Structure formats: structure tokens, C-alpha cells
Simulated assay, not measured.
Amino acid sequence: MSGHAPEHDPEPGPVPEETDRAVERATDAFVAHRNLLFTVAYEMLGSAADAEDVLQETWLRWVRADLRQVRDPRAYLVRITTRQSLNRLRTVRRRKEAYVGQWLPEPLLTASDVAEDAELAESVSMALMLVLESLTPTERAVFVLREVFDVGYDEIAEAVGKTPAAVRRIAHRARRHVDARRPRRTATPGEAWAVLESFRRALDTGDPRDLLDVLAPDVVLVSDGGGVRRAALRPVVGAEKVVRFYLGGIRKVSATVTSEPTLVNGSPALVVRLDGELDGVMALRVEDARITGLYFVRNPEKLTHVASGTPLTLR
């Protein structure tokens, strides 16, 4: 990666006017790349809250850097973000071990431009984000930087503290692992919207036959209540079991249940409300015009980023 800046101010220290100009330049560069840095951190962590914390830590280190020694601000910022994400990833993995039930990534309300970028939409999809959870922290960092952001092996090596040769081996292993678990064929946006609309109508009517028509026989439902809202402690596998779980759960409450189509993590999804109050977000994985994966996030702490859009970018 580009020039290595020291972690402390050079001696002698700059005069106040120079300091102000340096902070202004640092701020401009950080703001210019902020959406990219957030996307890197989010794809590594699966949590918008943790990604925001990483960006704050990145800023504190960036503003102390001697920019005269930084040849490529974007590369340098990505390196800082990656290191801070790795540090936090090791911490949150311990936190997830004590999590009640299934853990799902924090859903993000995204604009149509994310959905139109097929590469970006797939990289932040709930299906792929869940696969990334099965990688080690270093494997995840290498996969995200190489496969999603097309960062060179030498730059990744600096970011993760490995040799380029080791990074190549890690990248190959992580790619093989992900390829074995990612969806067989990603549905087009039009196909996904059509399936979503059929699913929404089936949910509204509560007719088991309509639900079975839109669910693949081997569909998997993963629900995340965080120990606060009702959710299955383990994945529910099979169309009939998924229908029973839904009809025997949320459809039985006395409140009025409504669902609204929206874009979450770059893909069609449903925002579920009970008596007008936000209850959860249901993301879908669609293959061959059937739903093969349902990701139902009900944990209130993970629903803070579905009220307004989150800008994401690969560049």
C-alpha cells in the first residue's frame, strides 16, 4: 500500500496555521472517502454501529498522520479502517458467542443505486454477509478487500500484517469457502421484486398454500430477536416448517400486521409493522423464482438504520 505515515506528529511541531490547514486537508480527504470506508467496515463487521465506531477510530488516527508522507490517501485510509475493523471483529466475535439465538447482520436501508450495482448489491446482501460470518477475521478481511474492493495483494498484506504470499493463500481458501456456500444463481432485480410481491400477498392473506407456492422446498428461515423479540433459536429448514413458524407466531398476535416492500442491503425486502410500529425487516434470497432464504431481523437494536438510507460504495 502507499506511503507509511507515522502515528505521531513530526518534530518540531507545526505552527498553528499549518495545523489548521493540515486538519482541513485531512478532513476533506476523509469526507471524500467516508462512504467507501463505511462500506469496508460494514462488510467486515456486519454492524452499522460497529462500522461507525471504526470510522471514528480511523479519523482519530488519520488526523494525526503527516499527510506529506501519504502518497495515496484512499489506500492509507482503507488500511487504517481494515486494521481497526480487524481489532473490533475479534472483539465482537466473542460478543456473538454469548448472543441469544441466531445472529444476523444489521440491515441497512439502501438507495436504488446500490441495487443497480450488481457487484455491490451482492457483496452486502444478507445471504453473502451471513456466509462471511463463517470466515476467520483475517480470512474475512482478505476476502472483502480482494474480492469486493479489488485491492492488490501487497496492499492487503500491509493491512492485515501478512506476507503477500500468505495473503494469496488466504484469499484462495476464503474464496473457495464462500463459493461453496453462496447462492447458485443470483436472481435479477425484476425476478426478485416479482417473488417479493407474491410473498407479500401470501403473508397478507395468511394462506398456507400461497406461502408454499413461493417458498422453495428446502427454504431456510433465520430469525434474529436478540433475546428481546420472539425468534427461532436455530434455523428453520423446510417450507412447511417455515409456514408453521410464521403462522403460529407473528400472524397470531392481536395487532394488525402489515408489510411494506423496500430495498435493504441492495435487495428487495419487507419492512414488517405491528399496528404501525416497526417490528422487523425480512430480507430474501431468491433462486429460480422461489425463496430459498429468509432473514428476519427483529432485534430492536438492529433496526435503527431502516428509517433512512445508508450510502454505500465500492469506490
Rank of each mutant, 00 (worst) to 15 (best):
A174P: 03
A157E: 11
H4R: 14
R79C: 12
V70P: 07
R290A: 07
T58W: 05
M126E: 07
G161Y: 06
R181T: 04
E301A: 15
G206S: 12
E301C: 14
R61K: 15
R184E: 13
D279T: 08
P10I: 06
V23H: 02
N35G: 10
D154T: 15
T81L: 06
L203F: 11
R146G: 00
Q84D: 11
S308V: 01
R61N: 12
S85D: 09
R25G: 11
V243M: 01
S308C: 02
T163N: 06
D50E: 12
R88G: 02
R176C: 14
L36C: 08
N35M: 05
P107A: 01
V100T: 14
D20T: 01
V63P: 00
E43N: 00
A65L: 08
V178W: 05
I156V: 15
H172K: 15
I80P: 02
L247E: 03
L67H: 10
A115H: 07
W62I: 08
Y246S: 08
D150W: 03
R88V: 09
A75Q: 15
E133S: 01
P268L: 04
A255G: 13
H177F: 11
F245C: 01
E57I: 09
Y153E: 12
V220T: 15
L278R: 05
I250Q: 09
D9W: 04
D224W: 04
A166H: 11
I80G: 03
L270K: 02
D28A: 15
E287I: 10
Y99L: 05
E122I: 13
R185L: 05
A255P: 08
V70Y: 08
L212F: 02
P235E: 04
V114Y: 00
P107L: 05
R229H: 03
G152E: 13
A216E: 01
R273T: 08
G46N: 04
